[in-house]
Design a binder for these strands. Structure first.
Lengths: 335, 335
DNA sequence: ATACAACTTTGGAACGTTCCAATTGCGTAT
DNA sequence: ATACGCAATTGGAACGTTCCAAAGTTGTAT
């Protein structure tokens, strides 16, 4: 409980006195009201400069019962894609004239619970959440029922009465897999991800549908779950090569998993992009700098930010729409 | 300016009525005062549960002129080390019973300016800043003079009257370089970083001192500046090999730069850790998963968090102490 | 029983803003 | 000149909390 700034602060009263108007007029200027004369506005602005006044949002938010503080609750900031997404969201939200704060749940549902409990006390205007695994529909709905606008991103919680913005996971892996098939590969594995995360199912489905439609036989054994980090990618690749030594291509759950898989491929004496084709998902900055440059499904963080803001600006409680953000396949050297 | 939660909220008055005590007593319980009887405390806590009361920090913060909201202003969240640092800081701050919010300046001093201006309005208790390039001492001092506790991290601004927490940059590269020298290498380059960032000088100094003390001649030409990202590492490595084709070892400004350098080495037909030894700085998660696993200077994000919190808890304005956080050399396969 | 200290509890004022209803100012039509 | 409408301005109340000084409740020593 650190003490706040020092000195007695400058208030609207002080500004009013200096400007020679009433505090109400100052308030009107501050809130950008149309019904204040230009002369008054000028006087007030001058007085604000002279006095070094700083707006007190706590007081404003308490009186007006409004807030322009949006909380972004991210599942894991150390995941490069999450970080990229967070940055994109932040920018879009600021463009809307709102202010965003970021907190990190670290994929821990209890931490997430704590954070949200605290954030409620800070009177946030809305929650943008990438929910930690284990987040229930009940919990989410409770938050909504308390009157907080909530938008979920990246992960879907079935039964939750919230708007959700997702990349088109199905289309992404579907395109990627079709691309591999078009290249003539038949022995294809799907690496990484876990059943506990909603997007896993969608990405896996995109893969299997492409395989089935192309009449290519494949084994569920070659759909290998793993942690969604570099190490997970290595393990999944190891397993894949044990099961199918003649593997021709892999479709990965994410770029980070692909990085691990490429690493492991090299250790096994296979050259990625030559002996085994590989494609990722996310299109991280690093992916075009890999050797070989990684083909991947590009997900535009800004588009997600825009979609979220769109929902935010015309939210009504109970709106449960789902927005799929289009993705593109970016073909590079690895496939 | 999104509208806040819906319904009329439950206040201390409501809790007081249900508990059968006065609002003052409720307030005492909420603030964890010692001078309230156990029976009263129990009644109040029960009433809080029953009514679903949520604390209104805006009101509290306005009246008490205190805040427990700490702003962490990060230079670039998409940089993995910054992200790791941010997460570590967040955890430590929460352990102190404070709440932290994260914002990202994206290395842009104008954005940083905007963010801080906004954050002041939110009555933050303190700023923890990794200042964007171009942040001046005047600007920083102004913030301090306005009464805000400020702690700078990672980057030092000369002339700024603020506490600063830094990894021991000099010792880090010094150890790393000594390690290379002990391995018998003599043709050593220092790759990455830019003069515009304060820690560049310290890390470079650690390198040159080790070289000089060992009586190893070296050329400034082999201290090659670059962007501190993967691409920068590639470019720096390219230049290094042009200047000195017989290069034996490289000390890198950061792990990310080292990643790029390793990439480029491979493209040039050199095997990292075998043909050319390489050491990084930061010790990112990924570094031990590289092939070869990257030797690096380990900087403990939690230690930095702890140091920051230490400063925060006994800050007095004008305190200008500088804390160097100890670092360790982690030797892996790459050297 | 009374006095006193120590501990608990309490109502009213205050924090800085916005909302509201009322008032002022001003130009135009009567 | 008077009345009217419209725009601009204004003082007081209110938001939900904490602070403060005063009052109430104990328990113990006289």
């Amino acid at each position: 409980m650190v003490t706040h700034s020092g000195s007695k602060s400058v208030t609207v009263h002080d500004v009013a006195r200096v400007a020679g108007v009433s505090k109400s007029t100052v308030s009107l200027v501050l809130t950008g009201s149309k019904k204040v004369s230009d002369t008054a506005k000028l006087k007030v602005e001058k007085a604000i400069d002279e006095t070094g006044y700083v707006y007190n949002r706590d007081a404003a938010s308490m009186r007006s019962r409004k807030s322009n503080l949006v909380a972004i609750v991210i599942n894991d900031l150390t995941n490069p894609y999450s970080a990229q997404l967070a940055v994109g969201l932040e920018q879009q939200i600021r463009k809307m004239g709102l202010f965003s704060m970021l907190v990190n749940s670290g994929e821990d549902v209890e931490t997430q619970n704590q954070l949200v409990r605290n954030l409620k006390e800070y009177n946030v205007a809305a929650f943008i959440m990438c929910p930690a695994p284990g987040t229930t529909a009940e919990w989410t709905n409770q938050l909504v029922d308390q009157g907080f606008p909530v938008v979920n991103i990246m992960r879907e919680i079935s039964g939750a009465k919230v708007a959700t913005v997702l990349p088109d996971n199905f289309a992404g892996t579907n395109m990627a897999t079709q691309h591999m098939l078009a290249r003539g590969y038949r022995k294809i594995a799907f690496l990484g991800g876990r059943e506990t995360i909603s997007d896993y199912h969608q990405r896996l489905a995109g893969f299997t549908e492409a395989m089935v439609l192309a009449n290519v036989p494949f084994s569920n054994q070659l759909c290998i779950q793993s942690d969604t980090n570099r190490n997970g990618g290595r393990q999944a690749m190891t397993t894949a090569l044990e099961i199918e030594p003649e593997l021709e291509a892999v479709v990965c759950f994410s770029d980070v998993v692909a990085y691990g898989a490429m690493e492991q491929m090299k250790l096994a004496g296979k050259i990625p992009g030559k002996d085994i084709a590989i494609v990722g998902f996310d299109d991280l900055e690093d992916s075009r700098l890999m050797t070989p440059a990684l083909s991947t499904v590009h997900v535009d963080a800004n588009k997600i930010g825009i979609a979220v803001c769109h929902i935010l600006s015309n939210i009504k409680d109970g709106s449960r729409n789902k927005i799929l953000v289009a993705v593109d396949l970016v073909v590079r050297e690895s496939s």
